[in-house]
């Protein structure tokens, strides 16, 4: 048997195995992914749509920890003041 034949046969098996693996759960996995994507979109775009970002509230706790790094970052970026409404600095 030629090397090319072995390779193509292996590819056939690999395809069969991946179909056997994925076919029964395609829907479930796609739904789980869609749910995650929905949450992600909400987090990214919520404020744009006028919905207060629920993550903001929780990230408030990070403020003292991040304060110094945040100050360095916004001055390095050429902004005198914090550009974010919910993350005040100087």
């Amino acid at each position: 048997m030629k090397w090319v034949d072995i390779k193509s046969r292996l590819r056939g098996w690999a395809h069969l195995a991946s179909e056997a693996y994925n076919a029964p759960y395609r829907g479930t996995v796609a739904r789980a992914k869609r749910d995650q994507d929905d949450l992600f979109m909400l987090l990214i775009f919520s404020e744009m749509m006028g919905v207060p970002n629920p993550a903001t509230y929780y990230t408030l706790e990070l403020q003292p920890i991040l304060l110094e790094r945040f100050h360095e970052w916004h001055t390095r970026m050429g902004m005198e003041h914090s550009p974010l409404d919910d993350f005040r600095c100087c």
């Binding site: 179909e19 056997a20 076919a23 395609r26 829907g27």
Partner: peptide
């Protein structure tokens, strides 16, 4: 919709129907 509804090779479909 390529999620729940998707045409599948009958041997593969038999395999997972049988094992299920």
């Amino acid at each position: 919709d390529d999620v729940d509804f998707i045409p599948t090779n009958r041997v593969v479909l038999w395999g997972h129907h049988f094992t299920a």
